[in-house]
Nucleic acid binder design. Structure first.
Lengths: 329, 329
DNA sequence: ATGAAAGCGCTAACAG
DNA sequence: CTGTTAGCGCTTTCAT
């Protein structure tokens, strides 16, 4: 049945200027022939790939899952597909990540920490006009599309909770120093301690990297001393769970003899036992939001060159891993 | 400096017939100009997108992470990029997933359970000549590129371990019934019980869906009875961890009063306390392997139409969540 | 070793 | 409402 390519194109794309009869017929035939249009050709002409990248480091799996699921939630039923581009040690080679992203043929990219805080990277992708959204950046907050949370305030909240329970000897397990979040959360701890008139004991501050294994080692080191802390503030849930395990392995029961608080409200904080007191960082919602803004920019609904910032709220979740300080004995 | 597009193309692609001087010069200029070739145009002519899809359901996050990381490990430093395509309830609408995959402009696709066991889906993508690799399928094992593990044997192994410890009243938490793995693992349990001359108590068999929350409810139901099981076999680690939590919430200590074994050897099995006895299913290696075969097929090194199967080994990991049965009292 | 022309599969722009 | 022409950006012929 004579039909020109153009008519087929119009019919399949629900473009105007095609009679209903022809449109239906064309669709039937296309289905019968298992015809799927060539995306590369469409991309070439449309000048868009409908690919959105997500780049992250691989610190805590639970964090990455949330991040990715948030983005995927937004992309569902959209034409856009998600390309995952993990990349480690961005801080030492931001230009390599930049090249990777620019060569990936993306329409836009979601930048998780710590890539979102690399000015060199931002410069590169801006120069190529690759639209991007940054998830919880801590510097240059007026640059690009930003989805953020006040992590200083969040750190303050959880530290204040521990202090309010009466704890004074508090161990701290920091996250990966290359993540600005580690500093921000620590800054919040500092504020809370200052307000309470309590000094932070530097010998009780250990540096982790957001993973369970390192968190476990740091926690053991903190707890296996003559005068041990009565509480531990961990900068994410994985390390908090590790601290609980380290405590148990030393014969300490949580929360009776040791209070532990985490950060993130990731899945593991709920499946841990006892359930973890933590700060909800709505990663999934933020990732959704970032994807949402990015799509809006790609669809021309907002100008990606104009910075935009949306701050999400944190929330303290008091669960079973923290309790009031009991006098020893 | 006068150079034709073709020369540039040759130089940038390290194709022959370009003088070294020109090649270097072209590359310099390209770098200075921040030139990145248009992937859509390259794809159009090469008839390949260098996109590999990964499709999965979202049962256990820990499983998905392993799967994805395995594939990403293989794709690192390759030209191929990974597109993640989660899709729920495949069993009830395999053709929709088929369309999604065929419209995604992929060069090949990795099929995780339960999509890998959908003949309708396989038919569709075969008809369009979309190369695919199946990860732990349980039917039509001679179809396509297959990476497998004997889950019946794995189920047998872990059940035999529990029985060897003296347990006779054993609760079982099944996974999602739409996953063939659930049946296979149960079949293994059956074999072990038969060999031990122990009957499986149907009233102690509950159906979960591989998630922590449902696993917790099923475990509570199993444990909150006058005559409770002394051990629980859970079909994945998330549900096993949930069973431990349910036991604790009922005042049972693990493994003294309740032994719990999982399946998968996922991250959570190591971060749980006590650490989980489980069966190692090398998901990450299998995903790597699947990606590896798929790439080989795409590069023409193997014929994707000829079926290929590689079976991976399982391994029982006896950790702290299982112990010999103690006589009551 | 380099250049010219043609075309990958599709769709804007313009006719008719 | 439908068809023709041209071209997206790159790379393959085939010349030179």
């Amino acid at each position: 049945m004579g039909v020109t390519p153009k008519t087929v194109s119009r019919a399949l794309n629900d473009a105007p200027h095609v009679s209903q009869a022809v449109r239906v017929k064309v669709k039937e035939v296309a289905a019968a022939l298992d015809y799927y249009p060539n995306l590369a050709a469409q991309s070439l002409i449309a000048r868009r790939s409908y690919l959105i990248g997500l780049t992250y480091e691989r610190p805590s799996p639970s964090y990455v899952v949330e991040l990715q699921n948030g983005a995927l939630d937004r992309l569902e039923n959209e034409r856009y597909r998600l390309v995952v581009l993990p990349f480690n040690h961005v801080a030492s080679r931001p230009d390599e990540l930049g090249k990777l992203l620019l060569r990936a043929g993306l329409d836009g990219v979601l930048l998780a920490p710590p890539a979102c805080d690399q000015p060199v990277l931002l410069d590169m992708i801006e120069r190529q006009r690759l639209p991007y959204a940054r998830i919880t950046p801590h510097s240059d907050l007026d640059r690009g599309l930003v989805v953020a949370m006040d992590e200083v305030a969040a750190g303050h909240t959880v530290a204040a909770h521990i202090l309010a329970l009466g704890h004074r000897r508090v161990g701290i397990i920091l996250g990966d120093p290359s993540h600005a979040a580690s500093r921000a959360r620590m800054e919040g701890y500092h504020q809370a301690f200052n307000e309470a008139g309590v000094a932070i004991d530097g010998s009780l501050v250990g540096t982790g990297d957001f993973t369970y294994d390192v968190g476990y080692r740091v926690a053991l080191d903190l707890l296996d001393r003559p005068v041990r802390p009565t509480a531990i503030l961990a900068q994410n849930d994985d390390m908090a769970v590790a601290a609980i395990a380290a405590g148990r392995d030393l014969g300490l029961s949580v929360p009776e003899q040791l209070s532990v608080a985490g950060f993130d409200n990731s899945e593991v904080s709920r499946t841990a036992w006892p359930q973890l007191t933590t700060v909800d960082q709505p990663v999934r919602e933020m990732a959704w939001d970032a994807a949402n803004r990015l799509i809006a920019a790609l669809e021309g609904e907002i100008d990606p060159a104009v910075s935009f910032k949306h701050e999400h709220e944190h929330k303290l979740l008091v669960r079973a891993s923290t309790a009031p300080l009991c006098p020893p004995g």
